Simulated assay, not measured.
Amino acid sequence: MDLNSATIREIRIDRGWTQQQLADISSLSLRTIQRVESQGLGSLETSKSLAAAFEIERDILLSKNTTIVESASLPQAVNIYFLLFSFALGALIGALVLWLLVL
């Protein structure tokens, strides 16, 4: 089965895991992790184990999906923008209240 080695490596590095840590978490051998990251080759069971370790859908790890990882971090980006928007709105409302009190 063709796996997206760049996606797997990127997710592992983003989580701060070594290849050995990923092997331990996924119950796979270090050699299997090395093969997946270098050649993108792995069995169905390997892809299931990696998906479970990363707590993501298995389809994200398939080689045809290259942009899903970017959208997987979307909720965090949305939360940051919502937080910034909330602060800006709060500052605007505070300034409006202050202006009304001065009048």
Rank of each mutant, 00 (worst) to 15 (best):
V97T: 14
A88K: 04
D2P: 12
I68G: 05
S26T: 02
S27N: 12
S73A: 10
L44P: 06
E37C: 05
E57N: 14
A88R: 02
G16R: 09
G16L: 00
A53C: 03
L62D: 05
S26R: 05
A51I: 00
E45I: 06
Q21E: 09
R35L: 11
T32S: 15
T46L: 00
G94K: 05
V97G: 08
S47G: 11
Q39N: 14
K48S: 15
S71A: 11
D24R: 08
L50I: 01
N4D: 07
L74Y: 00
Y81Q: 11
A77M: 03
L89I: 10
I25K: 10
S47E: 10
I11S: 02
S26N: 06
I13V: 13
I33K: 08
Q76E: 06
T18G: 13
R15G: 06
T18E: 07
G42C: 02
T67F: 02
G94R: 03
I25V: 15
S5F: 00
Q21T: 12
T46F: 02
E45Y: 07
L30V: 13
R31Y: 11
V36L: 05
A72Q: 03
V78L: 02
V102R: 04
L3I: 03
R12G: 11
S43K: 09
D14C: 04
T46N: 13
G40V: 07
L74I: 02
F82E: 02
I11L: 14
S86P: 00
L100F: 04
R15E: 12
A91Y: 03
L62N: 09
W17Y: 15
L22C: 15
S38Q: 01
L100Q: 09
S73K: 08
A72R: 01
N79W: 01
G90Q: 02
E70L: 01
F87H: 11
A51S: 03
L89H: 07
I56N: 00
A23W: 05
S71L: 13
G42H: 03
V36T: 00
S86Y: 01
L101I: 12
G94I: 06
L83Y: 08
I33P: 14
M1S: 10
A95T: 08
L83A: 11
V69K: 13
L50N: 02
N65Y: 04
A72K: 04
R58L: 07
D24V: 14
S71V: 04
S49L: 11
T18M: 09
Q21V: 10
G94E: 07
F87W: 08
G90R: 02
I56C: 00
A72D: 08
E45N: 14
N65Q: 13
L92S: 13
L96Y: 08
F82N: 14
G40Y: 04
R31L: 07
F87A: 14
L83I: 07
A88M: 05
L22D: 07
S38G: 06
L83R: 10
G16I: 04
V36P: 05
I25A: 13
F87K: 08
A91M: 06
